[in-house]
Design a protein around this nucleic acid. Sequence first.
DNA 1: ATGGTTTTTACTGCGTC
DNA 2: GACGCGGTAAAAACCAT
Length: 317
Amino acid sequence: MFPIKREAGISGLNECPNCRSKLIGDTEKGEVLCPRCGFVAIDQSVDVTPEWKSMDFEERSKRMRVGMPSTLSLHDQGLSTDISADNRDAHGKFLDSYNRQSAQQMKKWQRRIRTSSSPERSLAVALAKISEAADVLRLPSPIVEDASLIFRKSAKQAVSKSKSISGMAAASLYLACRRANVNRSLKEIAKAAGMQSRAAAKYYRLLISEMESNYVPPPTVQKYISKLVNKEKINTRIERLALELAERANESDISSGKTPAGLAAAYVYIASVMCGEHIPQREIAEFAEVTEVTVRNRCREILENFTIRQKLRPQTA
DNA sequence: ATGGTTTTTACTGCGTC
DNA sequence: GACGCGGTAAAAACCAT
């Protein structure tokens, strides 16, 4: 038996963060990893390929089964069986009264058993929460899968023991976004999960301190700028300029400890002024989810530390 | 717990349209 | 006068110790 290779899709991560080579999935070990440096993006993923081999179409179609692929976002991975509700036997005939009664009993018990134990129940609730929040934020399903996996792991390691379920769900979703390079602030996710961002931050810290072995770098200021620009459909000229400014300023000492969002807002603001479009601070601050004061302070620091003035002239072209 | 840093809240004054 | 902007003080939040 040789390992079956497939494209990495489940994590939402396609590229190794260390060496940037394409990640591959090893379904035998249930891992998604980097072939060059051995970075493991995901382990314990579910093998979704068939367990059989087929030589031709006929054989394949005989062995083909129906049903949805298994998913980590349902507490039983979508693998449980439902007893149908229409009270018929395997031949399509209606059950007699005795069998009908016993079928009803079985249905009732199956329902109970499926989410019987407490961990099972909270898992179900949490995964529902993740899906719901992801739905609100229009996040793609690979992220939901990854978030579900993260939550499962945290539950396994008892990180989430006696913690708020929605808190851990939000934290898992946020980490999944970070891993997949999807720029969603913790604030947004907390809001979608119906909780305070302050609380969500606490759970996120807990989550990474307890279980994240490989460090996920925070989004760059450039990412924030792009997000800000996309969100408000700001002229791409401004975006390019803001990105250039950010790159030239190179963040040396003004950025440490400051929220990247505020810095990004400041760059976009400066760029907008330089382009002659002049977006009010008020608006930019709102879009970036920071205060005007913060925008002003960042602006002041940027303008103090770097002589951008030389750039003021040519942009009129 | 505490202290230092950063962000927010709230308010004021200035210049311009 | 409304608006955008700059500044400040105090409260709140955050982070490392």
